[in-house]
């Protein structure tokens, strides 16, 4: 039972982080708070993907003495998995693009309705 908790508690903390972001997206009424919640959500998913690449006893995915062209063989078990890192680099850049467009839309909404609260915007639209 103790081994089970030790080997899984990281995943539970990622789920808790993701749910904090999800609650901010659907429960808060301020639009900037919703965007902050979206950022938390995406960061939790990236954290989960990066953690699937971790290997016990593995080092960074940079090959030692790479320029020497030595005859030593490269063992896959000695380096951690590089593929999730590559995919998450793309995801971080897309995350910031999404953040920029969302903030531009929030500024446009503020110019039109002069408020950031969702319920006041809905009341003005009636």
């Amino acid at each position: 039972m103790f081994d089970f908790i030790v080997s899984k508690y990281n995943y539970w903390i990622y789920v808790i982080l993701m749910m904090i972001g999800f609650y901010a997206m659907i429960g808060k009424r301020n639009l900037v708070k919703k965007i902050i919640g979206m950022n938390l959500f995406q960061t939790a998913i990236i954290l989960f993907f990066v953690s699937t690449a971790a290997k016990r006893g593995g080092t960074l995915p940079i090959i030692e003495h790479g320029h020497d062209h030595g005859a030593h063989a490269i063992e896959a078990a000695a380096y951690i998995n590089p593929l999730p890192h590559v995919l998450m680099l793309t995801a971080i850049v897309v995350m910031v693009s999404t953040l920029g467009v969302a903030l531009a839309i929030v500024i446009a909404i503020y110019r039109r309705y002069n408020t950031l609260e969702e319920d006041e915007i809905l009341r003005q639209r009636k």
């Binding site: 953690s51 016990r56 999730p84």
Partner: peptide, 11 residues
């Protein structure tokens, strides 16, 4: 799979 398992399917 366990956290940091070297034999997980992803690696």
């Amino acid at each position: 799979p366990d956290w940091g398992d070297p034999n997980s399917p992803a690696s």
